[in-house]
Design a protein around this nucleic acid. Sequence first.
DNA 1: CGATCCCGCCACATT
DNA 2: AATGTGGCGGGATCG
Length: 879
Amino acid sequence: ENILDRSRMAPKTPIKNEPVDLSKQKGCTPERNPMTPVKLIDRPQPDPWTPTANLKMLVSAASPDMRDREKKKELFRPIENSDQSDTPDSLQYDMIEDSMGDEFEKQRPSRKQKSLGLLCQKFLARYPSYPLSTEKTTISLDEVAAVLGVERRRIYDIVNVLESLQLVSRVAKNQYCWHGRHNLSQTLKVLQDVGELQYGELMTFLQHKEQDLEYRFRDQKKETLPDSQDSPLLDFSEPDCTSASANSRKDKSLRIMSQKFVMLFLVSKTKIVTLDIAAKILIEETQDTVDHSKFKSKVRRLYDIANVLTSLGLIKKVHVTEERGRKPAFKWIGPAEFPARTGNFSPSSNPLPGTQRGACANGKQKFSRHASFNFTQPCEGTRRKVNSEPSSPDLERPACVVNSDEHGCKMINLAAVCSQKVEEDNSSARNPSISSPLSHLPVPGDSDFCVTPLPQAVFPVVQTDVPSLSLPNSISGQALHPSTPALNKTENEKPALLPSQPFLCFPSSSVFMWCGSLQENNLKETLPTAGDVGNRSAEAQTAVPAAACQKRSSHQLTAASAPADEEEPASKKQNVEESDVPLSLVVPKKPFESPKAEATPGSVGTSAEHLEDFHPDLASPVAPEATDKECTKPLDSQKQEECSQNKGLGEPSQGEEHISKENGSQPFLPQYLYVQPTAGLSNFNFLFSANQAPGGISLAASPLPSVSVPCVMVPAAALASFPLFCSPAVISPLSSVPDGSFSAASSTNFSVSGLAPATPVLIGTTAVVTPKVSPTPSVDPQQPAQPALHLSPVFARSCAAVKLEPPVCGGHPVTLLKLQQPSSAPLTPKSIRPACHEAFFKTPGSLGDPVCWKKNEGNQTRSASSVQRRLEISSTSAD
DNA sequence: CGATCCCGCCACATT
DNA sequence: AATGTGGCGGGATCG
């Protein structure tokens, strides 16, 4: 509908403003956006511009009926149209169909045409979903409002929600910085973690019990908790800088509400949340009392938020049948589960940047940062962070604190929510593939990659967090980083930094093997998802994919139909978007993606590709990224010095096999190989094994020192839950050796040993990357904290993991935890930081030596290092 | 008639 | 005080 509407809308809406715009545009010519940095998307207002639109325009022009204003616009448009002809397909259809009837509508813009959702789509169309690193796009509220032809107030509605997801951040008065979706997965992860903390316990609890309980709870709810939720869940806001003063009203509402709303989805089993339940949960006070009016008001706001989220392709409207009848509800169709429940907490540390506006007003700094980070691809981002660390400004973002105690109440609600039955809006919606599969993907990588801009800096941390459960986190993080480091080298960034950090640096080309923690099963599931994504990407790039992904096909169709999708991601379609979303998810999985992304704009696709690796089909199709392929193969011959294994790799699929071979026993393991194309960076190749081994990873990771890759192998069991890790552990580059030591764990795929010699590798913990960046630090602290706070579950898990690990790193992990905990306890970011520092320093030695890394024995060292790093980072930043 | 949600008043925040 | 933000809810539309 929206689409159609849009087309229609275009004509009308703008009326007032448009003239202005037009004038501007004219000057510039179609692309005009000159003014706006954004430029990216011309299509922004595609609606009008579609070819069909043009026709309409012409027609209308011909007819006297047309309005004056319209005329103006139209006149201009035609010109523009020519340029933009490419505009979105959807529009076109509409246009065609409508063309005749439109006129009427034009005249009178229906409410729909003015809807916030549509407006949001237009808004999003203006900016690239995955902006290039270099670009930092600045958004001027006034300008956008004028261009879109709406009052500024409406723009606030959109921006506030986007900000809650960190798609944008406020830079200054009237100015926002567009970050795109690079960090989206990270943000979601954080929200999920936080949500779990707050609601999760109950949720899970409830879930088990099930609906019955739910209902009960609902009733109970009233009684139970007063929730103090008031305080922003995630406060992105920076506690520190800005005076607390700001808190007052701003923190609340839309931004926070949006985050909470998203959390409900992420925590909900069904991924479906009804408006009323959400409203009740979100109402600060006790639910019962809630006046009807208050409730109504809340619902209204939720509609506003839902419209934006829908435009983002994160949710869609559905109906749930409950006891009584059907109720409006929304279903989450965005990426789902990242790291997953297993190790959630970490995120909290970094919470989302979003809110923090006020904080220090460092607009400048932020700005710069953003610039640097944002766009760079994830990988770079991480790197930069490192570099940037010194800069420190980031601190602003200090971690967010999450307070989530009120869980109880919420939980109840959640439970209710969860329990809800969904009618399922439609068969299609359900595709498990989308939501669930994705979930599997761990995002660890993403976070790293994504790391985005400062504000987001947090994320990186988050990543770590995930793993936080046990060391694994760090590991995972590290894994990701490798690429970054490499980049750094190339770039010249400071090697020094790198060393400190947890990553591995490989000389330009190197091959990495990853072990996926995911279980086969999971993998499979994930794969599909990935596949989807991949497909999309592939399709976009090449037509190939389709076959492979049946699943998506339905969804894809749209995409397929419009080859251009890639280009237009944001522009319109949810469909596309949806796919996009998943993609993003995917990306996360593969830590490396980011690098690629850098190289290729279509980073998203790339990520998918990686995933695809698993599937032969996908992989090949993906090809589009010739680079990848090239990389892979070349790797064989070339790069992978170490990778004896890799040889086989030539192809990704093969790579898997190899891995498996090595692993031998492990059936699941070999998931895939990821080769990183050199594209942007130095050439890195990655091989992933999908196996679960995650557990191993975690530990292994910690041990950084010994780059020896071997580490990885943690018993999966523990980690299993976290897919992420794998990677970290992974990293071990080539693993020629296997395992010896660790592998014992079973999964061990790699033997890093080989690597060490071959190339200098730096292994960092995940944290590493971020280290310097202030934001991250904060995050780290949090992570630890969370666990502590929270809970047990995680904690326990972590412990378990640790136990498993013992052989390898055992102790270390634990240690880390402890350290973290302290920090966590305080909760407050600040407090945490200090702690971190201390901790950080303790271990430093290990970190510092590059050499150590390579060889290091020590898991311990590694772990410590990672931890330290984190700490450092925080500290540095703080400093 | 209930579900949506546009519109813009106006309070609070920031400059 | 002016201007930026954005809470909030009346009431118009939609279905």
